[in-house]
């Protein structure tokens, strides 16, 4: 059975065919998929163990269906996620419009989830700058406003891919080491409350 323990849930969001799956493939298997290949049966869920500040951490990376017909259900996916990588295609302005939809959803329903805005297919721009449809500075302004991290990646060349996931892991560790003790205390208090409540019921 697939019993691997996972510490952090990372959810991949983004319009269809912006390259969410390729990004994960590049990160986990260090390759870019072109044409048929045999090794994996699916890239929808992967668990990847990494080391941050001498501590091992397993990321569970959840791919999601980007089609608009499943938009209403996306909330089920990112429940409990600690980080969301919201992808858009640098050569497709409409895909960035959809980023705003997910960011909005995340802010409203999953406030503890950190957001990473990730432009994909940057390799396409190397040869032809005119293909760019989403301006980097616009994205940066937007990201500052929502306190998100921004990056532009290429799954083909591997540009910024590892850095992105490393950042996700580091942020998680840093955030948790700061928040950890206070959080634990909070839970303890609640439990005591609960137990007294239950004992009341017995009498």
């Amino acid at each position: 059975m697939s019993g691997q323990r996972v510490d952090v849930k990372v959810v991949m969001l983004g319009k269809e065919s912006v390259g969410k799956t390729s990004l994960v493939e590049r990160y986990v298997h260090h390759r870019f998929l072109q044409g048929p290949y045999q090794n994996t049966i699916g890239a929808a869920f992967v668990a990847k163990t990494m080391y941050v500040e001498g501590r091992s951490l397993t990321l569970g990376i959840w791919d999601t269906a980007g089609s608009e017909r499943y938009e209403a259900m996306s909330r089920i996916y990112y429940r409990g996620a600690k980080a969301a990588i919201v992808c858009y295609d640098l050569t497709d302005a409409s895909s960035f419009e959809r980023v705003k939809f997910w960011v909005n959803e995340l802010q409203n329903f999953e406030e503890h989830c950190r957001i990473y805005i990730c432009g994909t297919k940057s390799d396409l721009l190397e040869n032809d700058k005119s293909l760019r449809q989403v301006d980097f500075h616009d994205v940066q302004d937007y990201a500052e406003e929502i306190k998100a991290h921004v990056c532009e990646t290429s799954s083909k060349t591997g540009q910024s891919v590892d850095e992105l996931f490393q950042k996700v892991a580091e942020d998680y560790v840093n955030f948790n080491s700061m928040q950890g003790p206070t959080e634990a205390k909070g839970v303890d208090l609640n439990q005591k409350q609960n137990s007294t409540l239950y004992s009341c019921c017995h009498h």
């Binding site: 998929l33 994996t40 890239a43 999601t64 089609s67």
Partner: peptide, 20 residues
């Protein structure tokens, strides 16, 4: 399901294939 998709498409399935 992943196997079925893989055999049909000859490439690994993403969530966009899996959910439907």
């Amino acid at each position: 399901i992943f196997n079925a998709i893989k055999i049909t498409k000859n490439e690994p399935a993403s969530a966009d294939d899996f959910l439907p």
